[in-house]
Simulated scan of single mutants.
Amino acid sequence: MREQYRTMELTVADLAPEPIEQFSRWFKETAATPAIHEPNAMVVSTATPDGRPSSRTVLLKHYDEGGFVFFTNYGSRKGRELTDNPYVSLLFPWHPMARQVIVTGRAVRTGRDETVAYFRTRPHGSQLGAWASHQSTVIGSRAELLARYEELAARYPQDEQVPVPPEWGGFRVVPETVEFWQGHENRLHDRLRYVREDAAGGTTWQVERLSP
């Protein structure tokens, strides 16, 4: 199976001076496209210290000049792997628009205040779910998970504040490279990549074009 992408050319002149601004441009366009159900869904790829990779889809919750933020259980597989090996890749697969964004960088934990502030915005059921699920651990049955959830729901009814689990928090991915991929027919895709350069005078970004 193969599809011919017919889109507009992406040139260096089209890009914003730095990648977060460019990401914001594409993200807003993606969010306005009905064909894309969850524009903030991204594939997070991590690896153990000896290089064994794993990937999963999570939701981007915030982005700014500091990086891309998502939340998880620090005891989950991705949480453990990022603790031992902070190098990470993010992939935003916006296929209906023939676009992808690929971020590589290092993950650092968010501060507890930021974690608590975000946790308070989650629906009540999702807050309970963060307690009920010992993420990535083997479980005997779904009934066991549901029983744990019902116990928590009885302990913390809708009008009571749910405490933030101590092992739950955020990661901020500080980008080192950000690639913007635009598909074209005959596999002649545009791939423009920002590369971070840190110096005494501050951070600058160089843009390079990659062969498809």
Rank of each mutant, 00 (worst) to 15 (best):
Val88Tyr: 00
Gln135Ala: 02
Leu91Cys: 10
Pro19Asp: 07
Ala153Glu: 14
Ala132Gln: 12
Gly51Gln: 05
Ala143Arg: 13
Trp94Val: 04
Asn85Val: 00
Pro157Trp: 15
Arg187Thr: 03
Pro175Asn: 10
Met8Val: 15
Thr203Asn: 09
Gln135Ser: 01
Gly105Phe: 02
Gly202Arg: 07
Pro93Lys: 06
Tyr87Pro: 00
Arg25Tyr: 10
Val44Met: 14
Arg172Val: 06
Gln4Ala: 07
Thr104Tyr: 12
Arg109Tyr: 06
Met42Cys: 09
Phe119Asp: 14
Asp190Met: 13
Ile20His: 02
Leu188Cys: 04
Pro93Tyr: 11
Arg155Lys: 15
Pro157Arg: 14
Glu18Gln: 15
Ala153Trp: 06
Phe27Arg: 03
Gly202His: 12
Ala153Lys: 15
Arg122Lys: 14
Thr104Met: 11
Gln22Cys: 07
Gln4Glu: 14
Glu114Tyr: 11
Thr11Asp: 08
Trp181Val: 10
Ser211Arg: 12
Ser55Asp: 05
His95Gln: 08
Ala98His: 12
Ala35Asn: 06
Asp14His: 09
Val207Thr: 06
Ala200Val: 07
Val43Lys: 01
Arg112Trp: 03
Val116Ile: 15
Val88Asp: 01
Gly67Leu: 09
Thr177Asp: 08
Glu21Ala: 15
Trp181Arg: 09
Phe23Arg: 04
Ser126Pro: 01
Thr121Tyr: 01
Asp64Met: 06
Arg120Asp: 15
Glu21Arg: 15
Gly169Gln: 11
Met42Ala: 12
Leu90Lys: 08
Thr11Asn: 10
Asp159Ile: 00
Glu197Asn: 05
Trp131Lys: 15
Ser89Gly: 15
Gly125Ala: 09
Ala130Trp: 04
Gly125Asp: 10
Ser45Asp: 04
Glu144Asp: 09
His95Ala: 05
Asp64Val: 11
Glu179Tyr: 10
Leu59Ser: 08
Trp205Glu: 05
Thr115Gln: 04
Ser76Thr: 12
Pro39Trp: 01
Phe171Val: 02
Leu59Arg: 04
Gln206Cys: 03
Leu82Pro: 07
Pro93Glu: 10
Met1Ser: 08
Gly67Phe: 13
Ser126Glu: 13
Arg120Gln: 15
Glu3Asp: 01
Trp94Cys: 02
Ile102Trp: 00
Pro17Arg: 11
Ala98Trp: 10
Ala47Ile: 06
Phe68Pro: 04
Gln135Asp: 02
Arg109Pro: 01
Phe71Ser: 12
Leu90Ile: 00
Gly105Trp: 04
Ala200His: 06
Leu10His: 03
Arg187Val: 02
